[in-house]
């Protein structure tokens, strides 16, 4: 599904990723943990195609295509999804128009006709119930005036709508109370299947109580320094990152 080899990336003159290697197979859930500044969010940004990050070395193969050659919209159309740490408010663009444009962008890329109105509405209904997103939030402008928890639920709603091959969740637990964390995690778990993979980026172990990973990696100074099973997260929680 995803093969990251020797990835180096920088912002301005600051080198952040310094030879990162990671392989994610179909249906696997990988957690990436690490102290602040270790490069977790940079990895998410580089994978999703944020323009301010420059890849200086390495390669990323995404299901047989060179991910780094594509711009952000094509990466999404190929099946990559990033759940933002800080979802953006876009006044005046309704959530529904946003999702319709996104789905039809992907469908056009696949040579398909735009989605039928009735199919779209049914999909909205199904996906919204997954994360308990009520009608009021669906019809409003994208994230405008949403609480922190509502924004994160909206991210997972969008993920469900777009049915990605690979979803990167960037600190989705930050700013969530325990109820919102449960709802968001349920949404993610409902989407897990044998084809869809996840990279769950988090600072804390608590999210991993809800979204149980197959693998846990520790990122430090732009490299993966330790990998293990889900028990590694517990160990980290207990001993702190200094232990690595």
């Amino acid at each position: 599904m995803l093969k990251i080899k020797n990835l180096h990336a920088q912002v301005g003159d600051t080198q952040i990723l310094q030879g990162l290697n990671l392989e994610v197979g179909p249906g696997e859930v990988h957690a990436i943990m690490g102290p602040n500044g270790s490069g977790k969010s940079t990895l998410a940004s580089v994978l999703s195609g944020r323009e301010s990050y420059e890849v200086t070395d390495g390669s990323v193969d995404f299901d047989g295509v060179d991910l780094l050659e594509m711009d952000a919209s094509d990466r999404a159309r190929e099946g990559l999804f990033l759940a933002f740490q800080y979802p953006v408010e876009i006044p005046g663009v309704s959530n529904m128009n946003f999702m319709k444009a996104a789905i039809n962008g992907k469908r056009a890329h696949q040579g398909l006709d735009p989605i039928k109105g009735t199919d779209f509405l049914q999909k909205v209904k199904d996906c919204a119930s997954l994360v308990e997103l009520d009608g009021r939030l669906r019809d409003r402008s994208v994230n405008e005036g949403f609480s922190g928890g509502e924004k994160k639920r909206n991210e997972i709603f969008q993920m469900a709508m777009l049915e990605p091959k690979l979803a990167v969740l960037d600190e989705t637990d930050s700013g969530l109370d325990i109820d919102a964390l449960r709802v968001v995690s349920q949404g993610v778990n409902a989407m897990r299947n044998s084809d869809r993979s996840f990279i769950v980026i988090t600072h804390y172990q608590r999210l991993l109580d809800h979204i149980v990973p197959d693998y846990v990696h520790v990122l430090s100074e732009g490299k993966i320094v330790k990998s293990g099973g889900k028990e590694l997260a517990l160990e980290l929680e207990e001993k702190g990152y200094d232990w690595i």
């Binding site: 999703s48 195609g49 944020r50 323009e51 711009d71 952000a72 919209s73 990466r75 999404a76 159309r77 999804f81 990033l82 933002f84 979802p87 953006v88 876009i90 006044p91 005046g92 663009v93 128009n97 946003f98 999702m99 444009a101 996104a102 789905i103 962008g105 992907k106 890329h109 402008s141 994208v142 969008q158 777009l162």
Partner: peptide
């Protein structure tokens, strides 16, 4: 906002048009 729209598979021109229209 542009990156957010693009990250969902909306092309650059269409993303700009959505923002302008709003």
């Amino acid at each position: 906002a542009l990156f957010y729209l693009k990250s969902r598979g909306i092309g650059s021109d269409e993303a700009k048009a959505l923002l302008v229209k709003a």
